[in-house]
Structure formats: C-alpha cells, structure tokens
Design a protein around this nucleic acid. Structure first.
Lengths: 211, 211
DNA sequence: AGGGAGGGTGAGCAAGCGCTTAGCGTTCTC
DNA sequence: GAGAACGCTAAGCGCTTGCTCACCCTCCCT
C-alpha cells in the first residue's frame, strides 16, 4: 500500500540495501521492531518473517543492533532530506513551512512502521551509533528553525519563542508515527494538509509582509 | 525534584499504593521502564532498585506485567482527571482549553518518567488490560473534543476539523513526555504556558463571540 | 511463652535469548 | 571439471530471563 505513494514520489524504499536477502531481512526487522519494539523482537522472529533460518541473519549483519542502526540511519537520512529540501526550496517562508510540514507528516504517516522504529527506538542504539543519529536530528531541527527565523524576519510569522515553537512543530509531526494507522479514516495526504494548516496557525502566518 | 511541584498541587504521587514495599517496587519499576523500556527491564533490576531480592517482587505483584498495568492505570486516571477537571471547569471555551493544555502538559513534563511509561508502553500490556486503558484514553479524547465543539458553537474558535484538531492537540501534549528532560532549560510551567498559547492559535481563538 | 501470619531471602528451574560453528548445496572461475 | 567462494542451515553453546519454592525472621495476639 505504500508502494503506490512511493512510486508517485519516485521513492522506492530500501532500494539502497543489497543484496536481496539483506533487504528482505531489513524489511522484516522494520515490521517486527515497529510491531513489538526492538527489545521484544527476537532474531528468530526477524529471520522467520524473511523466510530464513535464524543463522542467516548473521551472514548479512553482525548483530541485531546493526540492523536497527541501518534502519535508523536510512530513515533519518530520508527525514532530513525531506526537511532540507523544503527549507531550501522556493517560495516565501509560509510556503516552505507548509511544504516542510506537509511532506514530513506525509512520510511519517505513509511509512509509519519505519517512522516508529526511527523515532522511538533511539535509546536502543549503541552509544556511538546514537550520537551519530542525534547529530542528524539536530540538523532537522536546524532546518525547521531556519524557516521560522526567516518568516519572523520578513514579518510573515508572529513567533515569540522560535526555539520552543520549532520543538513543538517537530514534536507534533513526529508523533504522527505513534498514532497513525493505515486502517484509520485519514490518508497520509489528508493528515499532511491538516497539519500544515495547524502549523501555519501556530506561527501566526499572515498573508505577506506588513510593516 | 517533582516533590516541590507536587506539594504545591497537593498531589502526592503513588500515595494510593500500599504497603510501603509495594510502593517502593512500583516507583523503581517506573524509573526502570522509563529509562530502558518495559521489555528491556528485568525483574532483578526493579527489585535491585528497590533494595530487595528478586523474589520480593512476587510477594506484591503476580507478574511483571501487573506492575506495568498498575502504573498505567494510575497514570491514566490522573491524566483523565486533569483533562475533565479543566473541561468541566468555569470560564469560556478558550479559558478551559488553556487550562486543559497547560495542566496536561505540565503533568507530562513534571512527571515525564511516569508519563513516558504511561504513553509509550501501551502495547506491552496484556490484551484485557490494554482495552481497559484504551477506554480511559477515549474519555480523554472526548474531554478535549467537548471544549473544541463548544468553542466552535460559541464562535470563539475557528476549527474546520474538530476530530482531527483534537487528535493533534492531544498528540502535541503527549509527545512532551518523549522529549522533555529535567536537565533542559525549560520548566514544566514554561512549557505549559508555551503550549497553551500555541494551541489557542491552532484553534483560531478570538477574543469573544463576533457574529 | 507459643503460634501463626505476613514480608523477606537464596538457590534454582525451564525456557528462551543472541550468537557461533561445522557442514551442505549451488554457482562462478579458470 | 576441479576448486574456491558464497548463501544458507541444523544444531547447539553460554547466558539471562520471568518466576517458584523451601525456608527464615519479626512481629502481634492470646
């Protein structure tokens, strides 16, 4: 069901993971981690979902944690790419904020299993992997903050607390991964549109500079 | 550090749990679950934090899951109490929404360890316990939705999608438990004030009826 | 003083965990 | 067509897990 959306975006998930068996294992791990959590997932479960014996996992990955790290890294790269593309894109601050929130939320909804692992299993990473990922997250924060700062400077936005509002905007988007269900009534596009509107209200977006 | 805030609110956490040893175990479990997650926490760790032998846990609780259930139940009761108190309180819709978000967020920040367990370990509950808790959550949702509906009816709010906005407001507040750190720069009160303002903007709160 | 109840411990069981190793079949190389 | 390389499996090792059990200590009641 994600594949239609992905094809439309020209985005084929996990295509960067080779060989095929390694990708199947990784996709199985994403499903298992999202469903039961990293610690509650066994390597036997992952291998089983991929249609392999438990030992097959260790041909392609040194440890279970390496699997999580790969997932987290790829997911964070994608999330950061979405945000920086919007932040550095064309249009006024309001248009870029709309695009950022809309696409970021859409990704979290459409790929909510992946996003759940990416956003909620950070603490399960080994310390050195964790700090690598945290650096990526700081870049995401910076991208959103940049849009807000520019909007305030141009007079489009009314934001008393840029740092706090940045935090809130990202938090709002990220939490979509927790509650979104494919069985629910809303499509990723609808949630993206709703959230973009809510965020523009949060920053007090006005039509254009008014000095 | 929570205790000053709690005393000010006349709220002493876990006072309903007796005897003393059972409370100590429960508090230890909250810390451990919040820090490492339910599945990654061992019963030996919980007992150790409470200064007891591993077997002592099973005098007061039948299983590790019963501990989680007790924590989740007490936490959800408190959260629901906060929201319904605000929703049924005095004042116009904007004042009640402000109070609801402010106190709900303040609780999530001040008790972020408890809140983290309450909000993010739902899936670790046994099915029958899970559905009991889900029912409480639906009541929380209803309380917020009530405020929004009344605000729209009175002309105070401009909300095109009440159900979606309710979801977003709760989501925003709940996610505070994920990112809030006592070591951070913001106090629970400050975050509560910031979020109350952001939410009032989200619902397009206007001074008063304007027909 | 004696007895029972409740809170606690040390040792340990069965099961399941992450991960390893010896070996098998297939494919590619020269 | 021999032999290395690769992808994979069956079996299992050492360890940790949630939980149990036999026993002990300290009260309190009579």
């Amino acid at each position: 069901m994600d594949s239609a959306q992905d094809a439309a975006e020209g985005y084929r998930p996990w295509s960067e993971v080779t060989p095929d068996a390694a990708r199947r294992l990784l996709v199985a791990a994403v499903d298992a981690f999202a469903e039961r959590g990293y610690h509650a997932t066994t390597t036997r479960d992952i291998a089983g979902r991929a249609g392999m014996s438990p030992a097959a996992l260790y041909i392609h990955y040194k440890t279970k944690e390496e699997l999580l790290h790969r997932i987290s890294r790829i997911g964070h790269d994608k999330a950061l790419d979405i945000l920086t593309t919007a932040a550095d894109g064309p249009g006024c601050a309001a248009e870029r904020l709309d695009a950022a929130v809309r696409s970021f939320v859409r990704w979290h909804a459409a790929h909510h299993t992946t996003a759940r692992v990416v956003q909620y299993e950070l603490d399960a990473l080994a310390p050195e992997h964790r700090s690598e990922i945290v650096a990526l997250r700081r870049q995401s924060d910076a991208a959103v903050r940049r849009i807000l700062t520019e909007g305030v400077a141009s007079g489009e936005f009314d934001v008393p607390d840029v740092a706090g509002t940045t935090l809130a905007v990202l938090s709002l988007c990220i939490d979509v991964a927790r509650w979104f269900s494919a069985a629910g009534r809303r499509t990723p596009d609808e949630v993206g549109a709703l959230y973009a509107d809510l965020v523009l209200r949060m920053v007090g977006a006005r039509p254009r500079p008014q000095k």
